[in-house]
Design a binder for these strands. Structure first.
Lengths: 217, 217
DNA sequence: CGTATAAATGACTCAATAGTCATTTACTTC
DNA sequence: GAAGTAAATGACTATTGAGTCATTTATACG
């Protein structure tokens, strides 16, 4: 028998709920994996009761699929903000692409998506295929495109682009997977900015000493 | 009422069971993740009843820890078979280390371990810390060691080894994670041998065209 | 201010599976 | 070949969490 209730026990927010539930679910799925994620906990994190979740998503699997679909779209939207200008050099384009990946994806909640999809790939082949066909295929196209242009213009050596595109993204992709797995155990968090610089330096210039310099010494 | 039973219904194999259970469990954990793995299924895969599993491992978590511990040791044993001779060049050493990783780990069931630990890291921080402190720390030491020796001898440029060691292993590590996630959706399986060659070529020589050659043209 | 209804909930059911245990059986040893 | 026992099992219990539903409540609108 509360004499004067200041606040209503809950609010009706039918338009904001779906997004809030997706955000909460992404965080939980990334942290615990699909099977270990409790819908009770997702709801709590979104500030609603478990039954409310079922007003917006049919069941756990549909919620999971919605999270992946939505995050994928959000990731593309973020990357699209970096307009691609074909006028500059291939080197500048490649640098810009990787920097965009770091700033728009690696340092956002979206960074959890690859780890999530990788971990659940064999339990949910259709989700993995969707990610593969939408995200990976497009990523490959963009990167092999830049590499081929650079080779055609004589800016890059004639490397095998089918392998090179994976090698180009691997350090950044792995570093975001790392961030969601071992970050807690490392003395200092990985500095993405410096990591990117180091990668670009190695990528363009290689590890071996330039012979001219060695001869000069 | 079988008139003449040829075979006994089961055999006593107390010394072989633990290993067989670990093998079955690694495969299941890698494929489905910790939570989604059914002990009934692990037992079936190892050719025993579920209750038998409990004769050898206290519970699911202890089985999981045993799998990780045992696989880690096995991975080291495999890599140790490649004796490291400090006499050769840093470049040859680095090549040998990466080749050993491909031949001894990437192309064996052990390749599932990194994905498993990464996926379950936040559910089992103590397992992740164990992997981090044992496997990653040693890996970092070995690779930064070779890089530093190469720099000291003038064979390599003076790159930032704290970042470079990650970049050196990233393509191979990512490719084994890939193998356990998206392999089914790719036209052809990734050729580790050629991938390694492409990586080494890029790593040592870089992407940018050598200026001398460009000037000559 | 009263009413209609969409939004939200708490308390429930039911299925799945981790873990237990009394019983059976393969194998050793004398 | 009989007895003893370690190895293995099938059938069981207990718990957890996905999904349901009757009821409550916020809020829009006349």
């Amino acid at each position: 028998m509360p004499v004067s209730q200041a606040q209503p026990r809950w609010q009706r927010r039918a338009d904001a709920r779906p997004q809030e539930l997706l955000d909460a679910a992404l965080a939980e799925f990334v942290e615990r994996g699909y099977a270990a994620t409790r819908l009770e906990e997702v709801a709590r994190r979104a500030g609603v009761a478990k039954a409310t979740l079922y007003l917006y998503y049919e069941n756990k699997l549909e919620l999971f699929k919605a999270v992946v679909r939505h995050s994928l779209v959000a990731a593309f939207d973020e990357l699209a903000k970096e307009q691609r200008d074909a006028a500059t050099s291939a080197r500048a384009q490649l640098t810009k692409l990787l920097a965009a990946f770091v700033h728009r994806v690696a340092e956002s909640p979206l960074s959890g998506l690859p780890k999530l999809v990788i971990a659940e790939a064999s339990n949910f082949p259709d989700v993995a295929r969707f990610y593969h066909d939408e995200m990976i295929r497009r990523g490959r196209e963009v990167f092999t495109g830049v590499l081929e242009r650079g080779i055609a213009s004589g800016e890059f050596r004639a490397v095998d682009v089918d392998h090179a595109w994976r090698i180009v993204i691997a350090p950044l992709l792995l570093s975001i997977i790392w961030k969601h797995s071992f970050a807690a155990f490392e003395a200092a968090p990985l500095d993405f900015e410096r990591h990117l610089d180091a990668h670009l330096d190695l990528l363009f210039n290689g590890l071996a000493t330039d012979r001219r310099k060695r001869i000069r010494r």
